[in-house]
Simulated scan of single mutants.
Amino acid sequence: MALERFLKDGKLITIPRKQKAKEALFDALSEKFEFDRDYSEKEVNAILAEVYDDYAILRRYLVDTKRLARDDYGHHYCRIKLEK
């Protein structure tokens, strides 16, 4: 899936509507995080803000699609393997 049409100068212009394109985007975003490493919410936000101004929605999508896990308080995040 070519994500370039959703990007301009390396920044995401819009979140794709089609599920297949969304999945490809979320896969690409999850690759910005290392396995076996804890990230603070501030670190996650900084990484995602490089891609899209509304980093909070991207963070929610990554958690909702089980690409990132977070603690009950939303302070710590980690990348998890996506089960397909």
Score class of each variant (00 low, 15 high):
residue 1 M to L: 11
residue 1 M to D: 06
residue 1 M to W: 03
residue 2 A to T: 15
residue 2 A to L: 10
residue 3 L to V: 04
residue 3 L to T: 04
residue 4 E to S: 15
residue 8 K to C: 01
residue 8 K to M: 04
residue 9 D to G: 09
residue 10 G to E: 11
residue 11 K to W: 04
residue 11 K to S: 08
residue 12 L to I: 10
residue 12 L to P: 01
residue 12 L to N: 02
residue 13 I to H: 00
residue 14 T to P: 00
residue 15 I to S: 00
residue 16 P to C: 04
residue 16 P to F: 01
residue 17 R to G: 13
residue 17 R to K: 15
residue 17 R to F: 09
residue 18 K to S: 11
residue 19 Q to H: 13
residue 19 Q to V: 14
residue 19 Q to L: 15
residue 22 K to P: 01
residue 22 K to I: 05
residue 24 A to R: 12
residue 26 F to G: 02
residue 26 F to C: 05
residue 27 D to L: 15
residue 28 A to R: 11
residue 28 A to T: 08
residue 28 A to P: 02
residue 30 S to R: 05
residue 31 E to R: 15
residue 31 E to M: 13
residue 36 D to Q: 13
residue 36 D to C: 05
residue 36 D to Y: 15
residue 37 R to V: 12
residue 38 D to M: 14
residue 38 D to T: 10
residue 39 Y to I: 02
residue 40 S to V: 07
residue 41 E to M: 06
residue 41 E to N: 14
residue 42 K to W: 02
residue 42 K to P: 01
residue 42 K to D: 10
residue 42 K to V: 14
residue 43 E to M: 07
residue 45 N to W: 03
residue 45 N to Y: 07
residue 45 N to M: 06
residue 46 A to N: 04
residue 47 I to Q: 03
residue 48 L to D: 00
residue 49 A to S: 08
residue 49 A to M: 04
residue 50 E to L: 12
residue 51 V to R: 04
residue 52 Y to A: 01
residue 54 D to S: 09
residue 54 D to G: 04
residue 55 Y to C: 01
residue 55 Y to A: 10
residue 56 A to Q: 11
residue 56 A to Y: 10
residue 57 I to W: 06
residue 57 I to Y: 13
residue 59 R to S: 07
residue 61 Y to N: 08
residue 61 Y to S: 08
residue 64 D to I: 03
residue 64 D to H: 08
residue 65 T to K: 12
residue 65 T to I: 02
residue 66 K to V: 06
residue 67 R to E: 01
residue 68 L to A: 05
residue 68 L to H: 07
residue 69 A to I: 04
residue 70 R to C: 14
residue 72 D to S: 13
residue 73 Y to Q: 13
residue 74 G to V: 13
residue 76 H to A: 10
residue 77 Y to A: 02
residue 77 Y to V: 01
residue 77 Y to R: 02
residue 80 I to C: 07
residue 80 I to Q: 06
residue 82 L to T: 15
